[in-house]
Write a protein that binds this DNA or RNA. Structure first.
Lengths: 344, 344
DNA sequence: ACATTCTGATGAAACGTTTCATCAATTACG
DNA sequence: CGTAATTGATGAAACGTTTCATCAGAATGT
């Protein structure tokens, strides 16, 4: 049915090897082909409508030109967290520039490890693991198959490559910003406990509070989560009580959580930023659409995506990166959800 | 290096064919293998750490178990439009249930056709085209390679499979809703002209206006777009003039556009919904986070994704679908961005 | 003029599966 | 009991590339 190299070679009156060397990208063979032959092959190919078969190539070279991207939780993470879309866009764009294709894997809650193995077994050249709540099983599986991986937003062991942002400093900056505005009763809506990010941002919060001389007893750490709903719930819990003792500011674990909080406050008739200031974390495109536009810590999502791709491709192509653990800087994006404390 | 079927067979003292039939999923051969042999093969495989090679299988079967998803515009569409994330999540989830993998392709503006060909040439079993501003070139390319495709949110010709939602009725419902609230001066922020969706929603708007007896001269059609920025611009243009003649309601081409409009109105000090009502279109998770939460037309994005997958997989597996053109119903989601016209 | 290198070219062996055709031995059937 | 069907099993031919080893002849160097 399909036209193969053999057909082209026969039609051009040359050998298959010559046709292969002429038509196919990146041939490493020592096969040389002269001008006359080249032209005959080229025209034979276009005449017959030759379609190159990457599968066959992969079989012999052992490379697929595909990298796998493991995103957890299609339901919640991909669907609802704009951070994910931004990262994905950055990754797919970077990959295409480097002429790699992207295979996307997701797991619905629970089966992350299982799904990862599916990904690994489908013969990708490398794997990008994003915020993976995977156990070390997955990594040893990768190692066994000798598939290189880079993890994004998660520390693995010393040997693994990873790309993170400076969550600790981000948490510190967010909290410090609120302190500088005169706030003292500052709540932190803490993210999901299974992600390393959560601990780092929390540590930043604690350090900033500590450095400002606010005693630990006045820290307000509210268990929350990275989605809108937990942010809403936490805000409802925190602000529906006595307004005298309620915090005057919130550092939410991310923008989505902040969005939920924003809505809760609006429903409670509490004005942001006049009565309560809010800082988020992520700075995805939608954060500017919130009312009021959200002051937040900007994660360099684009850069993280392209750096992760860069690292992974380097490893795949046997250029070992000099730095294996990367931590990109964050910055404060000032918008309208924070202002000076009403008590000062 | 890697352990192959041959190794396993030798170690188990059986034939390769037996090992293949035992270890590999969906074998269609008539090769039978008895219990004793099966056990020996199984234990040999786990002992040696056999890793199945899908590439080799693909080469002989001609199937890859991969479908390609073509999303235009990684920069704007994927990054910023939550609709895209929701659809993607739905598609990837549905595909995994059907044991297909997802290869993701995007094009940065302009090279959509080129990127599509890359997708087609990488031997996927089928292609999902989402909102593709592609020319018919792409489809004939698919046909030439006899790769089935389903297009989402775009009408192709009669023969092609497509999944759309009822944009016309959505546009009608949105406008009718505003009319029912007593509005007469209703603007429509029109989407990008290159998408068929745009025309359908616009027609719905016109029909509803017409049915309400509002003369064409009073229609207010503002060229806008599907992103936040054009929504913002259009609102600024529309509402910065004389408030007497300004519309009292807006039907935005989608939620992102509505979000931009919302922000513009907030900056202009115009209250929503007290002074101006706004209806969006899409109803992605983030639409409820807006202030005020957005009244919008709900697209059944999840269902569209899973239906598209269902159709494509059916075609791939030679079960021709009975209905080829699908148009899913939309509905009105009432939130807080609309209220009765201030003039009534 | 002879040895060496270079150029153009080719055949064939991989790559790791699936699956067809074949076969012996066993079981079922009338 | 003879024939037919079933079971368990195997060897080998694909699938469409890449690439190694080889070779003839031309160009180059001494």
């Amino acid at each position: 049915m399909a036209i193969t190299l053999k057909d082209v070679a026969k039609h051009a009156g040359t050998s298959i090897a010559a046709a292969s060397a002429t038509l196919n990208p990146g041939n490493k063979s020592n096969t040389r082909v002269g001008d006359i032959a080249r032209h005959r092959i080229l025209s034979a190919a276009s005449e017959l409508g030759y379609a190159y078969n990457p599968i066959a190539k992969s079989l012999v070279t052992g490379k697929t030109g595909v990298i796998g991207l493991m995103l957890p939780y299609a339901d919640a993470f991909v669907d609802q967290n704009p951070f994910c879309a931004t990262l994905l866009a950055s990754i797919v764009t970077s990959l295409m520039q480097k002429h790699y294709n992207l295979m996307l894997y997701t797991a619905t809650s629970g089966s992350v490890t299982e799904s990862s193995k599916v990904a690994i077994d489908s013969r990708v050249d490398g794997i990008l693991l994003v915020v993976p709540p995977v156990n070390s099983d997955v990594f040893s599986h990768c190692d066994k198959r000798s598939i290189p991986y880079v993890s994004v937003i998660r520390d693995i062991d010393e040997n693994a490559c990873s790309v993170n942002c400076d969550d600790y400093t981000g948490g510190y900056m967010a909290t410090k910003h609120l302190i500088d505005l005169g706030h003292r009763r500052i709540a932190h809506f803490v993210g999901n406990p299974d992600v390393s990010t959560t601990a780092a941002r929390l540590e930043g919060y604690r350090a900033a509070m500590h450095d400002a001389g606010i005693p630990e007893s006045d820290h307000i750490e509210v268990p929350s989560g990275f989605l809108r709903e937990p942010g809403y719930q936490s805000a409802m819990m925190t602000f529906s009580g006595n307004p005298q003792s309620a915090p005057t500011a919130v550092f939410a674990c991310n923008d989505l959580c902040a969005a939920g909080a924003l809505q809760a406050l609006s429903e409670l008739g509490i004005s942001v930023p006049d009565e309560v200031s809010i800082v988020g974390f992520d700075d995805t495109p939608f954060s500017a659409s919130l009312q009021p536009p959200l002051t937040t810590i900007r994660m360099p999502i684009q850069e993280m995506g392209s750096l992760a791709v860069e690292l992974l491709v380097n490893i795949i192509e046997d250029r070992q990166p000099t730095t294996r653990q990367h931590c990109l800087p964050v910055s404060l994006t000032l918008r309208s959800s924070t202002s000076t404390s009403p008590k000062t």
